[in-house]
Nucleic acid binder design. Structure first.
Length: 292
DNA sequence: GTCCATGTTCTTTA
DNA sequence: CTAAAGAACATGGA
């Protein structure tokens, strides 16, 4: 479930519970989820205190009391949950949850790759069935590598410069983390609809007016999504889980065939950059002579 | 069995 | 050479 709003929600919830705590035990069950592969990650973080938790794009950045850092990326199916060390009972969780309504939820999933035990009786579990996510040791390196600016603090001018460099479809450009960092498939589609821009429009052919509109649409969409604690799509959440609610407010994502909430025209779905792309053919007119 | 999935990176193609 | 498209990664749900 992780695009910028979901990661932002996770970090905001987790921060006040784990910042200031010391990592007393590191149970790394799969070494291959750590990059680079040759670092002794448990040794590097054991007995260190977490002094800050922050978000950069879709990365969850842990700062330790020696000034060194690492980040967790949730990929497609990653999840962090906070549990009570003694009982193993979930204290808090956020991320994609597997269907488990009938059986009693097993305390430990086979996809739990790391458990950090913290002082004060808490454990942070990192689970990720598909393992597209991972743990990235930074040390003293910057977490900025290969990342474009944050969309929430982006000026229309910055956006214009970055989009002007490519003729790719605007939808593909919005997914490129080197251009703008934090949008994913849901919020790219939702932002384009809010800005009334066709996803196939070449990025460098957007007019200044369209750029300004898109910049506002991205911010508005992300802010609303954060306010609703992100989107929970394609995964089940029980009453205790604190899944997001923004999926109820999606206007195009996953709504192919259903009427546009603005004009009633059926929402279309195409595949672009290998990703599902939903848009309203009426609200988001395809520019003349744009073809792929 | 088939298709699809909130992401990123490597490889192939044009 | 570069930009863009496509495949690959791994698992599970519908």
């Amino acid at each position: 479930m992780p695009e910028l709003p979901e990661v932002q929600t996770i970090v905001a919830d987790l921060a006040d519970r784990i910042v200031g705590r010391t990592i007393t035990r590191v149970d790394l069950r799969r070494r291959d989820i750590v990059t680079p592969r040759d670092v002794d990650f448990p040794k590097l973080i054991r007995r260190r205190r977490i002094t800050a938790l922050s978000r950069r794009a879709k990365r969850i950045i842990f700062t330790l009391d020696d000034g060194r850092r690492f980040y967790i990326h949730l990929g497609m199916s990653g999840r962090l949950s906070l549990r009570d060390s003694g009982s193993g009972i979930r204290v808090w969780e956020k991320g994609t949850a597997p269907l488990s309504e009938t059986r009693t939820p097993e305390p430990e999933s086979r996809h739990t790759h790391m458990i950090l035990t913290l002082d004060g009786g808490l454990q942070l579990h990192f689970t990720d069935p598909r393992r597209f996510g991972g743990i990235f040791w930074l040390g003293t390196e910057s977490p900025e590598k290969d990342l474009g600016p944050e969309p929430l603090s982006l000026t229309a001018r910055q956006l214009a410069v970055r989009l002007g460099k490519t003729a790719r479809p605007i939808k593909s450009a919005l997914l490129d983390q080197r251009l703008i960092a934090g949008l994913g498939n849901i919020y790219a589609d939702e932002s384009l609809h809010a800005a009334a821009i066709h996803p196939l429009t070449p990025a460098n052919r957007l007019t200044p007016q369209q750029i300004a509109r898109l910049n506002r649409a991205i911010k508005t969409t992300l802010r609303r999504a954060i306010h609703h604690r992100g989107s929970s799509v394609r995964n089940y959440r029980d009453g205790d889980g604190r899944g997001g609610h923004f999926q109820k407010l999606h206007r195009v994502y996953g709504r192919q065939g259903q009427p546009c909430l603005t004009c009633g025209t059926p929402i279309e779905r195409i595949v672009l950059s290998g990703r599902s792309t939903c848009f309203c053919p009426q609200c988001q007119k395809r520019p003349r002579a744009s073809r792929r």
